[in-house]
């Protein structure tokens, strides 16, 4: 399972990074003679309503969709990691305030809150990244904070304190590295979810605007042609599903190998 999902992830990443260099078609170039052509040897995934090659749009779109999704996961992780660790370590009022904030964010249906934030932000490729991160850091913060609470009175912390390490040093050198593994496993479990959220938001027309390709956006713009040309909807959806599936499978194996809530 782990090998399969990892190889699919590597395959997708390599095709998204290097694929556009190998493909002879420009994802933006319109060709009136090639409007909505079914899959063929020249265009394995067919062409869209503006005569653009769907495969190259999926590869370019993958660059954007995957960078946004993984970027949002990384940003959520960093924000949550820092706030969670600091909040759990310092405790007291700050901790109460931070956790009230976390509880509040988690009281919203997360994708709906991300929609609300995306709507008011200026629309560009960073919109979805920012919206997903503003919502997504809360569960990370709660997880890391909980873990810090369990380790902050351990012997190694007391020992560091006994030899005169400053509180900042204890937090940075002793507590944070301890949490890093847990946090990164949790993040890899969540990437599949970030990919689906990015797809949903770009399907709703939030974030990167046409003609910039995103996987969700491609599905949304080809919906109208579904009866006559179903491949236009089929391939971008498969790209989302396979990518999310391999990340979710990887997450499952990681979860099974290491107990993570």
């Amino acid at each position: 399972m782990k090998t399969i999902s990892l190889s699919i992830i590597i395959f997708i990443s390599l095709s998204v990074i290097f694929g556009p260099l190998l493909i002879p078609y420009d994802p933006y170039e319109m060709n009136l003679e090639l409007i909505r052509k079914p899959p063929s040897w020249q265009h394995p995934f067919g062409t869209d309503q503006k005569g653009r090659d769907i495969l190259s749009r999926i590869l370019y779109g993958g660059r954007i969709s995957l960078s946004v999704a993984i970027g949002a996961a990384l940003l959520s992780f960093s924000l949550g990691f820092i706030t969670g660790a600091v909040s759990g370590f310092i405790g007291g009022r700050l901790d109460m305030l931070m956790m009230a904030m976390v509880d509040l964010l988690m009281a919203f249906p997360s994708l709906l809150l991300a929609m609300a934030i995306s709507v008011v932000l200026p629309q560009n490729i960073y919109t979805v990244l920012i919206a997903l991160s503003l919502v997504g850091w809360a569960p990370f913060a709660r997880l890391i904070r909980g873990y810090v609470l369990t380790i902050r009175d351990e012997y190694f912390v007391q020992a560091a304190r006994a030899i005169g390490a400053s509180e900042t040093r204890i937090l940075l050198k002793h507590i944070m590295p301890q949490c890093f593994y847990l946090g990164s496993v949790y993040m890899s479990m969540k990437i599949g979810g970030f990919i689906l959220s990015e797809a949903a938001l770009s399907f709703l027309g939030l974030g990167a605007q046409p003609p910039v390709p995103t996987w969700g956006g491609m599905i949304s713009s080809s919906r109208a042609y579904m009866l006559s040309d179903p491949w236009m909807v089929l391939f971008p959806g498969l790209a989302i599903a396979i990518t999310a599936l391999s990340f979710n499978m990887l997450g499952d194996t990681l979860q099974a190998s290491k107990k993570v809530p």
Partner: peptide, 22 residues
């Protein structure tokens, strides 16, 4: 089950419309 969690809802909807309705 894990596939069901990974496939975008809106895409399932569109595929169902295509297969079952159209």
């Amino acid at each position: 089950a894990i596939t069901g969690l990974s496939v975008p809802v809106f895409w399932i909807g569109l595929i169902l419309i295509y297969l079952i309705s159209l």
